[in-house]
Every structure is written in C-alpha cells, then in structure tokens.
Design a protein around this nucleic acid. Sequence first.
RNA 1: GUCCCCAUCGUCUAGAGGCCUAGGACACCUCCCUUUCACGGAGGCGACCGGGGUUCGAAUCCCCGUGGGGACGCCA
Length: 472
Amino acid sequence: MTVRTRFAPSPTGYLHIGGARTALFSWAYARKNKGQFILRIEDTDVARSTPEAVKAILDGMSWLGLDWDEGPFYQMQRIDRYKQVIQKLIDEDKAYYCYCSKEELDDLRERQMRLGLKPRYDGRWRPEKGKTLPAPPSGIDPVVRFKNPDSGFVVWDDLVKGQISISNEELDDLIIARSDGTPTYNFCVVVDDWEMGITHVIRGDDHVNNTPRQINMLKALDAEIPFYAHLSMILGSDGQKLSKRHGAVSVMQYDDDGYLPEALLNYLARLGWSHGDEEVFDMEKFSHWFDFNSITSSAAQFNLDKLNWLNAHYIKHADLSLLVSKISKRLTSLNVDLAQGPDLLKVIELYRERSNTLKALAESIIYFYQLPDIDLELAGKHMTEDVLPILRSFTVKLNDVEWKIEAIHDLIQQTVSDNGLKFPKIAMPLRIMLTGGAQSPSVDAVMVLLGKSEVLSRINSFLDKIKNNLNK
RNA sequence: GUCCCCAUCGUCUAGAGGCCUAGGACACCUCCCUUUCACGGAGGCGACCGGGGUUCGAAUCCCCGUGGGGACGCCA
C-alpha cells in the first residue's frame, strides 16, 4: 500500500502554528514511507473563504518548505462530483431531504439543552418504514441529510489516541448539502479522502467527533476506511487555547520576527512528538524518525524560549551567505545604507552567536553603518576624569598602529599597564564611543571592522564634545 | 448539560511492571572562561493530580474522583 496523506486547510485565515504542525506531520509521514502528500483547499464555506487566505496558506507552506506531490485541489471545483454522490445516496435511500427551517432547529436544540440532552436532529423528516412524513412545505429549499445508522457503535483504532468507540445513538443525521445545494465539509472530506485514495488522515483532534460520522458515510459509499491520527492541540504559552484573538499568529509572522523556517519546523516537530532525547534535528532526520507511536496524546503548550534557543542554534550554523542576504534585506528596509560600513558578511560572522533572531541580529549591527546614539549616562560612568587624558593619548597612538586585532589589543594592553589599570578601563569607554552601548564583541575586533578612519572620527568627535561641555 | 479525549519538573518531553534514588532539553540559579554582553563548559534547583485496587513489585495496568481540553452548526 502506498501511503497517501493530505493537509486540508480551509482558507478562512492564514496558516498558523497548529495547522503548520499538522501539515508537517502529514508531510513527514508521506516522506518517510515514500508516499504522496496531497494539498487540498477546503473552500466550501463560500462566505468565509478568501483568495487571500489561500495565498497566505500557500506562502506559509512554501516558506516552511513543505512541498506537496499533488494539488492544491480546490473543493469548489469538485462541486459537481459531490452533487452526483449526494444524488446517489438519495437514490439508494441513504440520504433524504429535510425541510426544517433554521428557526425550527434552533428551537429544537434549545429545548434539548434545557432537558440536559445532547442537542441533535430528531429525524422528523427521516423516511422510515411505516412512518408517514409530513407534506413538504412549499417555498422551502430542503437540505439533504445523511441517514446515519441509529444503533451500534463506530469503533476505530486511532493512531495517536488508541481505540475510540462512539455509539451511533450519539450521532444524528447530519446535513450533507445546504439548502442552496452546496455540499458541506463533512461530506466533501469523505468523498475526497475516498477518491483521492488517502490512506492516513492526520488532523487536529477537534475532528475526533466528526470521525464516526465520516466512517459511517464511507461505509455507505462502500469505500475503504483510512487510518486516522488525531493530533492534540497546541495551546498558547499561557495554557489557553489559541485563537485569532489570542496568540494564533501566521507562520509568516515568524518570518517577519526573524525566525528561520528550520528552527520553527524543528520546534514544531518536538511539540507533541519525540525521539528519545533528540532535540535538534533537520527535516530529513525527522521524516526518517517520524512515527505515530511517539506522538503524545496530550495537549502541548507553546514555549517561545525554546523556539528562541533553537533559532539561535540555527542562526549559529546557517550558511553565512544566506544570513547575509536575509540581514541585508532587513537593514535595507530599515533605511540602513550598507555602503556606509564594513562588509556585512564579516560583521555577521562576528555577531551571529549573539542573537536569538535575525531581527535582533540586524538591529544589533546597525551602528556599523550609521552613528549610534550614545548612552550618556553610561558614558559618564566609564569616562571618568582620570581616564580621559589616558584616552586622549591612546587615541593619538592609535593613529599609528597596525590595523589588526592583535596590534590594537596590544596597544590597549600596554596603555592600561603603563597606567596601572585593568583592560576594561579603556575598553569600556571605547566600546561606548564606538557602539553607543556597553555590550559588544571584543572591542578590538569591533574596531578592526569599523575601520581606522571611522574609529578615529567617532572617538575624536565624542572626546571633543566632552571637552566643549567641560569648557561651558 | 451530553458525549469524547487528556493528565511526569514552570514549559516540551523520556518512560511499554522491576533498568527510576524518575532521564534529557528550554527557562532559572551558581561557578568557570573572559575585555563588557553573549557564546561555550561544569554544576544546581525542580515533577509521576488524588484515592482505591491488581501484583512479590506500579510513573507504567484497572476503577473512582478531581482538574484540563474538545465536540455537540445549512463552519471547517
């Protein structure tokens, strides 16, 4: 049997973390088994589906590098086929027209809730032996309902949750075609999973309750029942459900925020799945290791700290040229002119280990290309009266030094020794004048990158400013 | 309300009856490295939801409770 999995998002919003993980697991299982991964857009909710959302989903998938073998299929383009199958079910007495109005149904539900019952359709239009149906009211377009078995159990071995059994008495006759004739989700899924030959349905566990209905319809169509794997949800970092209002952001937002797709993928893979103590691995390894036995059946909380840690790791190990291209895009969009400073590649090489995100990395190196705002309070703390003269004479000597890390380092070292000081006594003021702040890589390395004339110009202009202030 | 699912450090997880004095990772703390901040290295803090069974033995199996989540749409 060739494994065929699918990812079937509805285009009512962007691709978020939960969807991305579902897609990732489906993709991985297909890859592991040399099967096919199919992308299907479930756009039968005409009112809420948008082309923008379709694009957002496709963008998200390709940013993550989750490539599909077939599709994207659009359900709206298969409407005729669904209608045929619906007609077939009606002809075979496996489905029927129901003339209940929405108001009637709301009424029914409300009454059942009041009685402590599970709200469900009572089957008033369901044709049965010896039962007389009311006359169809005129002027009402009926919906089509599937005739669900009214006894027995639907049982399946969920690949994640184990055996699940649900009584048919809990299920009602669900609507498979709306009054305007369009088929509904539960029905389209069944027809598609069947006709597209899906062998493993991997989806969020909010679909567990749909599964028995779908199995019943599959049986009615004499179709093979696929395996089901229901993934537990991903909760927000506060343990609350993710929703549009609450923390469910597009995967593309992670791109904007400076995360590498391989970091997000690695993080997501590890959320609800494990392979012993493995924490850091690429998708080749993941698709090799992936299996349903190692999926956790409980919900997982999203944790940004760990994503940050992974992202830092991937930044540290990324191709320098890739980082250069990503960082230069960011800096350019911040109106930073890269021609005004050192080779970006050299800067990134020195700074890549210091940031969790590309965004932070880009922002941390801006002062190579434009003058930094100097933290004056901090400067005051380090540039005390006693070090100013030493700094001045150091600057003069700097003019003649060979512009290499060691030579600069030696000069600083010699200056502090001559004056009975410790290294930071000179290094800190230099750092502040050159970068604006108190944190940077080794100051000699920063100086080499900045270049001699820029270094001297920044130091001198700051020292002059101090002098002028003192004279005032 | 009814049905379904879930339950190990703060978080992600390992754990398939003895290997568990419960392992790893993130976060946190301490120390080392050091030119500040990071990186890196070495340590540390920290958990089996509760109660009953089953068993010579239970984090692991069963039952009940509790807590969390999901579903109950002419949404997907």
